[in-house]
Design a protein around this nucleic acid. Structure first.
Lengths: 366, 366
DNA sequence: AATTAGCACTCGGATAGAAAGAGTGCTAGC
DNA sequence: GCTAGCACTCTTTCTATCCGAGTGCTAATT
């Protein structure tokens, strides 16, 4: 059922009022804003309550949005908020350094997101399965060599291997060609014991050298797949009135820093390729998040990787502002990381301001 | 001035009572424990108060230890606590996996420390300046090569370099010998512009290749020196009654997660080579820590590196238990990391239990 | 001289009751 | 269909009071 225009305005006002003050919103306060008397508002509000969009903490308090109310607000009512000059400038400046390691970059993106939104933030990158493109073995001395593996995602892993016995340069070279023949182009799941054993036979390896290098390889591949999750600004949770109760805060904070659980909720629910997804209170799978909301945005991290940034906060969250900021940061990251080389700087600033949309309108606008 | 035996017992009882209950300790409660009447205790307590070892939150509350009282307790009165079988077993099990990357190991040590002590914990490793031992350049294709640098601390760093122009295998080889000649054995501070420029001339490099690799080198060396600091279990702070006030908790938590500041306090104040250091309330330099205490232990991380683990908590902290646990974990780490190869497992368990000392009695007991 | 018992005093924390205030729902009139 | 008015509900806040734990002091006891 479609709501009347006035109901929409009232619902919007309640949501935004509650977001701003964290106090239930009464009819009197809205009378001027809406432009009719408080009694009318009361009638409308009681209908909205019956429809399930508003709730009353107790008989004589103002109204508070229900999860359904937030959902409606997010889906239809919310103003697509624009960022101020100052905000876009701050984000651009922070993102301006392309040459960081991806690890460090993620840590900084988490902090940036958290400081822009004033909520705890997380950032992670999901990588597709990778394989080794090529191996190189560097002979250091009779007891030492280095394995260097170039992965399909163009990262390089290495390991210094120290042996309790000596090897010749030639043995290393043999090993190198065997590994390049047998262990390239396969994902970690495809490395079986039988491959390892046959390689061992081919190398005439009696010392378990092959096994050591093979396990290093598998480690690399596994590590490259698992996303390192960064969490920043957890303690900002304590700024929110709903987490003045240390027990609540504690529960959510330790859930957040666990990290791994957060990820469980992420991939399944779809979101537009570059959109923003909002999960409100009970919509969250995890029990610990039933009273909280999660806003997340995804970005293209290049090389087929997809990255996610998000924030966690009370259901009474500034969805509009947060969504705008996340979207902008995500867009910036996409530009930065997906542009194969020589990124065009962060001139998507203009694009975003024109579209003024928290859902980035695809990247063909470049 | 030396305190009478009974005063010591009273002070000890007050400190331990307050640690246990977080409530001021009154004279009546101590009467049985000490074995004389409450009036006597009151007399003694008022003297201890005059001496500055105890404080009264208000006229008619029990006594609470002052920082000086804690200090005396830590220095002289504290029972050197032994760990239970279960605790040593838990620690040993966690530490049993030597083959982790040092990065991950540190993260886990932080979590272990935090979960054993129930306070937020941090872990870091201080490295001495390092240099590059040798460079290897791996030619991948006309536009790509990999630089591999073996550092003096036996870690290996690498970087994939993608060029907007093509190079020949031979150019890479030349580059390799130049770098091995000019950039090995020097710390990051010793790499000057003039060295870079002379290398550039020698290489006939017009594309800034040398500069790219040189800056990579400096990054590696700098990164190897700066200690990555890990913080774990921040939210446990909220378990402590003194941090029920979210504002206080927030202030301290964000200070802790900043991390960098924590380090400032560390190295100067000496501690026994393998000892435990306790810094109580106002003894801390940082303003944010004036109401908190820090207990830290250091360990030998091998290769001349020194590591630190520590916990942060209220001044009312279980110093004895925390010190014992930190010391045990630190000793375990020393064994594990400093033993050049084939660590002896964690059989120092026995040593520690025999000495029963929170300060590890040197390592010559091995 | 040290210890103990007794007692008056102090101060914070808990409890209960009253008052205030905000907001609702309903009814009647415009 | 909107608004004004009013009685009612329920929370929050304030205040006054009480209670008790603990102190400091004095006098008696060992």
């Amino acid at each position: 059922m479609e709501l009347s225009e006035r109901k929409k305005r009232i619902l919007t006002a309640v949501v935004e009022g509650y977001i701003a003050t964290a106090e239930p919103v009464g009819s009197k306060a809205l009378a001027q804003t809406i432009g009719c008397s408080s009694a009318t508002i009361r009638n409308e509000m009681s209908e909205l309550t019956a429809m399930g969009y508003l709730e009353q903490p107790h008989t004589s308090a103002g109204r508070v949005p229900s999860p359904a109310g937030y959902r409606l607000y997010v889906n239809e009512l919310m103003e697509k908020q624009k960022l101020s000059e100052a905000e876009t400038a701050a984000i651009n400046e922070k993102l301006a350094r392309k040459d960081e390691q991806i690890e460090k970059l993620m840590a900084e993106v988490g902090q940036l997101t958290s400081s822009m939104t004033q909520y705890p933030a997380y950032a992670l990158t999901m990588k597709p399965p990778v394989a080794v493109k090529r191996f190189d073995f560097i002979y250091v001395d009779a007891n030492t060599f280095i394995v260097v593996a170039l992965l399909t995602d163009n990262t390089v892993k290495n390991k210094l291997i120290h042996l309790p016995f000596s090897v010749h340069q030639e043995q290393i070279t043999t090993l190198s060609s065997l590994f390049n023949a047998n262990f390239t182009g396969v994902t970690d799941r495809e490395i079986t014991d039988s491959i390892i054993r046959s390689t061992e036979r081919a190398a005439g390896d009696t010392y378990g050298l092959v096994a050591v290098v093979a396990s290093f390889t598998m480690e690399c591949l596994a590590a490259a797949r698992t996303a390192p999750l960064r969490v920043a600004g957890q303690s900002r949770l304590l700024d929110q009135p709903e987490f003045r109760d240390p027990d609540k805060a504690h529960a959510l904070m330790s859930f957040i820093s666990e990290g791994s659980h957060l990820m469980d909720d992420l991939p399944p629910a779809g979101m537009g390729t570059d959109g923003v997804r909002v999960t409100i209170g009970p919509e969250n799978m995890a029990e610990e998040l039933k009273d909280s909301s999660v806003v997340m945005a995804s970005y293209d991290a290049g090389d087929g990787m997809r990255g996610y940034i998000g924030v966690v906060g009370p259901t009474r969250m500034d969805y509009s502002g947060v969504a705008a900021k996340l979207s902008y940061i995500a867009a910036g990251l996409s530009r930065m990381l997906a542009g194969t080389d020589a990124p065009r700087g962060l001139d998507n600033k203009l694009v975003l301001k024109e579209s003024g949309h928290y859902e980035q309108e695809g990247r063909e606008e470049e």
